[in-house]
């Protein structure tokens, strides 16, 4: 019988709330206070997130971010810097216990298994999507989605982004490039290496794409997704995590 998961369709929040909520959900899932959870959300204001191990100054032009009204946050997960444009992407997160039935024990294999939902969803929309190890999804060889996991307290949190529309100029204004000479080359290279829903489908119908992903996860993981809400404990926990961690400069500039 399919497992029942909670589905959260959140609108837009700021970066600090978003990352704090993902961790609060993970903690409540591992504490068996809520069922495994799939969440969709957006970023307002738009934000750049960097991976747990990245150097802030190495990756981000903070001044440019301020100029463009873009927030900067460090994720709990490793991986690379991502520009989360309010219009330009769909973000999801999922949280499950690490002994979830049928989930491969090896982390690399679990990326494949958990990304299946996205792959199936994109294929249903007509795109020949494929999982590309370590943690990407590509369409015709171009990256359309990046994903990242953390594992703690016997739980797994995976979050990821699906590109809807890409503005390489803005992206490389916010992100640092090794040297100015290759900036134009990098911008041109985005065309080659990256794609988006707009490029593949000609337009972006967020609702339709999100529904395809929801159906994709349901099929890939053989689950029933029941719309729900955050519980009070998650809301309170997220508030604390935001104030004590995610919104602090100690955390953001940790390395």
């Amino acid at each position: 019988m399919p497992q029942t998961w909670r589905l959260l369709q959140h609108g837009a929040r700021n970066a600090y709330d978003n990352m704090a909520i993902d961790e609060a959900i993970l903690r409540c899932v591992t504490g068996r206070m809520v069922p495994p959870t799939l969440r969709f959300y957006r970023w307002q204001p738009s934000a750049v997130s960097i991976g747990y191990f990245q150097g802030l100054e190495q990756e981000i032009d903070r001044e440019a971010c301020t100029t463009h009204g873009v927030d900067v946050i460090r994720r709990l997960t490793g991986g690379g810097a991502v520009y989360h444009d309010y219009e330009g992407e769909i973000t999801y997160s999922l949280a499950i216990p690490d002994d979830y039935p049928g989930l491969p024990r090896k982390i690399l294999d679990s990326y494949d298994a958990l990304c299946r939902g996205l792959v199936i969803g994109l294929r249903a929309l007509g795109m020949p999507a494929e999982f590309k190890p370590i943690n990407d999804i590509t369409v015709n060889g171009r990256k359309i989605s990046g994903n990242a996991q953390t594992r703690r307290s016997h739980g797994i949190l995976q979050h990821g982004t699906l590109l809807c529309d890409v503005d390489p100029h803005l992206m490389f204004t916010l992100l640092r490039v090794p040297n100015e000479k290759i900036r134009d080359k990098l911008i041109a290279g985005v065309e080659e290496r990256v794609t988006s829903i707009r490029r593949e489908m000609g337009s972006v119908d967020r609702e339709r794409v999100t529904q395809a992903l929801i159906d994709g996860f349901a099929e890939a993981l053989d689950i029933t997704l029941v719309p729900g809400e955050l519980i009070d404990h998650e809301i309170a926990l997220a508030q604390t995590l935001k104030e004590e961690q995610y919104a602090t400069n100690e955390w953001i500039a940790m390395r």
């Binding site: 191990f53 709990l76 953390t150 703690r152």
Partner: peptide, 8 residues
């Protein structure tokens, strides 16, 4: 860098 390590 953009690698992963568990636990972080």
């Amino acid at each position: 860098g953009d690698f992963f390590m568990h636990p972080e």
